[in-house]
Structure formats: structure tokens, C-alpha cells
Amino acid sequence: MAMCVATGLRRIAGLLVVGMALAALTSGTAFAVGSLSPGSKALAPGSSCVGDPNDMRRNHMRYLNHDRDRAVQRGNRSINHSLVGCIDCHAGREASGTPIPVSDKGQFCASCHTYTGIRINCFQCHSQVPEER
């Protein structure tokens, strides 16, 4: 029970902070760059996300769920939001070029999800690094 309350409080706090961060973002700060993982393709000059970063931050799970059903059940790969695509672009890399799993501590997915206290289900089954072989 106490744990539930604590998680709830943390979630509310998390939402507040994310809300403030979003407010900061819309006012055009460089915060967005700070949340990207070093070494990821997303940092390359000229690269842009498949959607508006604000919107992606808030709704990426909906887009992913929606497109995954199309991809798996209808074999439709002309989707805009694929998890493989996310990972390909957002996986950070060591200086040596070795990709780092996206839900490792401090990496792209983990940085936000740890903060908001929401467990990621994707990586029990999906690869966390771009395909290399």
C-alpha cells in the first residue's frame, strides 16, 4: 500500500517535471538534444524524428502499438513508427562504435522511463540494439 502511494506520488511528480520540460521545449531551448544518447544517429546533423518530438514523447506508445498491429497482423510494413526504426536511430554507441542497449541505465529509453517510473515491456522480446550482423 505504502509502495503504491509512493509510486503514485512519483508518477505525479514525474508528470509535473515532464510537463515543465515540455513547456521549456516549446519555448525553443536545446533541451531535446540533451535527452538523446551520445553516439546515436539521432544526433547526426540534419537528422529528424519521424514525428514532432513533443508529440512523440507523449504519444510514442500509441503510435507503436497501432503500427505494430498493422505490421504483425496485416503484414503491412509501410508503417511510420517501427520500434526497429526507433532503436536504429536512438541507440547510443561507445566510442568504439559498439551500440549500447536503449534501456541500459541513462540511455535513450531508460532516461525517461526510469524517471517516470513506467516499466518498458518491449525489450523482453525485442532487440535493444540495431542489427549489426
Partner: peptide, 27 residues
Amino acid sequence: MSDDLNKSSAHGVDSVCVEPALEQQQR
């Protein structure tokens, strides 16, 4: 394009099946 995105994010909270702009174009 950006108009569509704004719309979808505004409705995004209560609808799960958000139609991305690209899909609308495809449709």
C-alpha cells in the same frame, strides 16, 4: 503536415488509434 501533427497530438490522449499524417495521405 505540421497542422495534421498538432491535431493528432491534441486528440492523442483519448484515442488510441491515432492516424498519423502519412497514413491519412495514403488513405
